[in-house]
């Protein structure tokens, strides 16, 4: 079991990666050697690349911007276990096809859009109850009001679908961001 591997050339950076920021804040993001991961909002794959080194399973990286997805495809050719999925994270029909019934052990979402909660709830159909869910929440994308108030509203919604295990703000690395660890209920 490893949580991360650190090499001199590829330092983790909590200021650019929500995953690493959450790790720095002491959250348990343990990745097991055979875990398959579904990563929504992969961008050009900086964090995906690092996380992919923690498992021998597949990391399915979903991204809907063509330019970012090109970089992801380039990356996946260099690494052994990254499957790039150029798709809207809302399109669970397509993503179901792309997963080929692989059992997902970790679902991670980092999509700062207004409907990020709905996207997560929708995507949770793709995973089983035992799956661990890591959710990076950017409150500013939902509302300009006080972040704590947005968090409260978000948690009300999430409670109807998930068990909330842990919530932590990502200050000082990411302002007005929270990281939530969830499980299906």
């Amino acid at each position: 079991m490893k949580t991360r591997s650190k090499s001199k050339t590829e330092e983790w950076n909590p200021y650019t990666s929500k995953w690493e920021a959450a790790f720095e804040k002491g959250l348990d993001l343990t990745v097991n050697k055979t875990d398959n991961i579904l990563y929504l909002g992969a961008s050009s794959g900086t964090t995906v690349n690092r996380v992919s080194k923690l498992t021998k399973g597949i990391i399915f990286a979903v991204e809907n911007s063509p330019q970012m997805a090109i970089n992801l495809v380039r990356l996946s050719k260099k690494r052994q276990n990254i499957a790039p999925i150029f798709s809207d994270a809302r399109d669970v029909v397509f993503i179901t096809k792309a997963l080929f019934n692989k059992k997902i052990n970790i679902l991670f979402q980092d999509i700062p859009s207004r409907d990020q909660v709905e996207i997560l709830i929708n995507a949770s159909k793709l995973v089983s109850k035992e799956c661990r869910i890591f959710f990076s929440l950017k409150t500013q994308s939902i509302s300009q009001q006080n972040p704590k108030k947005t968090l409260q509203e978000v948690m009300e919604k999430l409670k109807t679908c998930f068990k909330i295990i842990l919530v932590k703000n990502l200050e000082p690395f990411h302002k007005k961001h929270y990281f939530l660890i969830l499980r299906g209920s």
Partner: peptide, 21 residues
């Protein structure tokens, strides 16, 4: 399909859909 084939399928599929963009 084994893992390698799944990844290849996704790479090809992504390339195809990216091209349309």
């Amino acid at each position: 399909m084994d893992n390698k084939q799944i990844i290849q399928w996704n790479i090809q599929q992504s390339k195809k859909n990216i091209k349309k963009n």
